[in-house]
Design a protein around this nucleic acid. Sequence first.
DNA 1: CGAGCGGTTGAGGCATGTCAAGAGTTGTGG
DNA 2: CCACAACTCTTGACATGCCTCAACCGCTCG
Lengths: 231, 231
Amino acid sequence: MRPEELPEIRRLHLFCDMTQASFETLLASSYAQNFPQGLEMIRQGDPADFLHIVLEGSVELFAQWSGRECTMAVLRPVSTFILAATIRDAPYLMSARTLERTRIILVPASDLRAMFRRDTEFAVSVINELAACYRSVVRGAKSLKLRNSRERVASYLLRQSILAGGAASYTLPVEKRLLASYLGMTPENLSRTLRMLEDHGIKVDGARVIITDREKLTALAQPDRLIDGPD
Amino acid sequence: MRPEELPEIRRLHLFCDMTQASFETLLASSYAQNFPQGLEMIRQGDPADFLHIVLEGSVELFAQWSGRECTMAVLRPVSTFILAATIRDAPYLMSARTLERTRIILVPASDLRAMFRRDTEFAVSVINELAACYRSVVRGAKSLKLRNSRERVASYLLRQSILAGGAASYTLPVEKRLLASYLGMTPENLSRTLRMLEDHGIKVDGARVIITDREKLTALAQPDRLIDGPD
DNA sequence: CGAGCGGTTGAGGCATGTCAAGAGTTGTGG
DNA sequence: CCACAACTCTTGACATGCCTCAACCGCTCG
């Protein structure tokens, strides 16, 4: 692991409140690894031996069943993933693959579990992180059950604009086929939906999104802080 | 609060490992309340001031958006709910209503947050509980995205049979209209689907489910421990 | 330059939702 | 105890959202 990476990791919510000694101990037993693009680094069902931290690149979490597959999340630096599985010492519920060349830190699950018994501040951080993850998945489930695909797309586009600082124009952070899967629809349907939404305040050119009428888009998306955040 | 209720609460995963002193302190600041059937005790968006514990009766967690509504979960004794919101000191993401006459314990969120900073074993229990809740919602999201409604119904029926000890016959624990919403479909569609499944190993008579051909039902449901548990 | 892949578009089909009506059940008040 | 209202559940007819399949374009990369 490169020494200049430690401060970045330390800044994560999960690690910023623990003692320096705990942090150093935990990271001392960890190691970094570089993966090429498209590598399936975690297969659902495998035992969860490591907490993963994305340092560079990006990672797709996806799930499979009966020959079907869907994207559950995309992670970018610096963030952790599959914390819950490592804590429960249970099999991964999702698979993970790199979307590009990606650098990952692997923290042994057993060290992690031992650490939050020793460092209360770390335990509190883990609690807060898990609660945040939980709420995030609940939001996703609400979106799936309460909105139709057009509304999900509109909300997503609006939310991305807000994440880009309220910009009227931005580029999609992921491929459209992946976005479709994330939003619970087929690529064809996303393509058609984006087309339809041009009557509702957006213009799409390749990966570029331009919001031409924010009010109209908002009326359709009906953003709700209990689904779309920010929390 | 009745003294005979304390041991039951104490037996919950969330509370069974903390010190007796911590447990007594926490429950001393709590109080019990009885609600009639159909009362909306929590409204989504309200600040989360209390952890709730169902002692008797049953509670439906549901979500609303844009005039629509869907069931997210049904809770029975003895279990806790909306732990995550109380921890984050954030608004509830879901509403809750009683399905029958229900007795609830209310634990002040601030006392809860203070307690897991003082009692490490309690902090560990909270971590485990949250991780379990998180995984449970992820399973639900996987089921929604990867299975069609017929497969969700079949899985549900099979799982209920297993929960009933592998019984070939059992009664549905909830009304069908609620079940439909929980499974992400309309009551009409559930009704038709149950009818169709009579060619796939079940027979339904009112709330009574009889599994006539477990193998056939299993072939359709394709139960998967990474979606249907048990974990 | 050709293969492969992502994206788009169209045609058609299936799954699911909507609307409406009626049977059965439950709860309530006279 | 009965009458009535309200509600669940079911079924049918119909509409539509979304998926599937297929073809094609444009781009990237070997």
